[in-house]
Amino acid sequence: MAAPAPRRPGFSRRAQWGLFWGYVFLVAGSLIAAGMLALATFDPSTFGALRLAVSEVTAPLSTGVAMAGSAINSTPAVVSDYFLVRTRNEELRKEIDDMHALIVRARAISVENRRLKRLMRTYDQTVDPVATARLVSSSASSTRRYAILNAGFRQGVHAGQPVRGPDGLIGRILEAGPDTARVLLLGDPESIVPVRRTRDGLPAIASGRGDGLLEIKAANLADGSFKEGDLLVTSGTGGIYGPNIPVATVMSRTRDTVLAKPLEIPDSFDYALVQKAYLPAAAAPEPKSDQKP
């Protein structure tokens, strides 16, 4: 069977009108081009004015097309800059996090350095230092208040020696091993420290309560006029603690008791200074022999 003949444009009315208008536009364009060529040849001034008018009319459209083209051309650069800026932001955030970690470490080191400097000044001012050691643990959540010191009798630490920090008294050595010792803290119920009030020298007794605070009792029961903020220091009585070691400040006064807060909190620092006992117990005298040599 033979293939059907190709359809002519006249088969469709739409195709006919399209072909017709195409010829019309082609002829009109040719006539306009010929007229413009003739006008430019024989009357250049009029052609220049017409060209300027056409430019004024088509300027907004040209501007819009130029802006669209510029936006399209700059799209790859904008996308590249977006990802570049995003990557740079991530790098800067990482640098900020790293710097924050360094700042935190620097602050911690600065605090530790200040504590060590205060402790070294205390060590230099103390005439009988024994050892400087680290408090490795403390029983802050128990009614019994102890701390472990990483120094023992090999370092010269013995029971009965006072332990202090940069700002004041911590307690005393309860028992000592070869390289560790147990410290009885001021807040322990068995801790009793003779103190005096700095503003007038009033003697008193500071005893632990088991909750981290001290109970102050004046030696002269008739004089109990403690005020908030009164500073208490060791009096030197008793032979263990030397005089003028800061101990606590008065917090409040009730009807029967005076509460004070120790100046040194074992959980807040690392190192402590062990001192010799102020008046060590004298050795018992040897009995005299009645036999004559």
Rank of each mutant, 00 (worst) to 15 (best):
S30F: 05
L31N: 01
L31T: 05
I32H: 02
I32C: 06
I32T: 07
A33S: 07
A33E: 05
A33T: 10
A34Q: 03
G35T: 07
G35P: 00
G35W: 03
A38C: 02
A38E: 13
L39W: 06
L39R: 05
L39G: 07
A40R: 09
A40F: 01
T41G: 06
F42M: 03
F42K: 04
D43C: 01
D43T: 04
P44W: 02
S45T: 10
S45G: 10
T46H: 04
F47Q: 04
F47C: 05
A49S: 13
A49Y: 09
L50H: 08
L50V: 14
R51Y: 08
A53D: 15
A53Y: 08
A53H: 08
V54I: 09
V57F: 12
A59K: 03
A59D: 12
A59F: 02
P60I: 11
P60N: 09
L61D: 12
S62V: 11
T63R: 10
A66T: 13
M67P: 00
A68I: 07
A68C: 02
G69W: 07
G69T: 11
G69I: 04
G69N: 06
A71G: 07
A71Y: 05
I72C: 05
I72M: 12
N73G: 06
N73K: 02
T75C: 04
V78W: 10
V78T: 08
V78C: 06
S80L: 10
S80R: 14
S80C: 02
D81W: 01
Y82L: 12
Y82R: 08
F83A: 10
F83L: 11
F83C: 01
F83G: 05
V85F: 07
V85H: 04
R86D: 15
R86P: 00
R86I: 04
T87I: 01
R88S: 13
R88Q: 15
N89D: 14
E90I: 04
E91W: 00
E91F: 00
L92P: 00
R93C: 06
R93S: 14
R93F: 08
K94C: 03
K94L: 12
K94M: 09
E95A: 11
I96H: 04
I96Q: 12
D97S: 08
D97K: 03
D97M: 06
D98H: 03
D98S: 08
M99W: 04
M99G: 01
M99V: 08
H100G: 09
H100K: 12
H100E: 15
L102W: 05
L102K: 13
I103V: 08
V104Y: 07
R105I: 09
R105L: 14
A106V: 02
A106L: 08
A106E: 13
R107M: 09
A108N: 13
A108K: 11
A108Y: 03
S110A: 14
S110N: 10
S110K: 06
V111S: 10
E112K: 07
N113V: 10
R114D: 15
R114C: 03
R114P: 00
R115F: 09
R115C: 03
L116Q: 10
K117I: 13
K117S: 15
R118Y: 05
M120W: 11
M120K: 09
M120E: 15
T122P: 01
T122N: 12
T122G: 14
D124G: 06
D124P: 00
P129Y: 07
P129F: 05
P129W: 05
A131W: 05
A131H: 12
A131K: 13
A131E: 15
T132I: 15
T132Y: 02
T132W: 01
T132D: 03
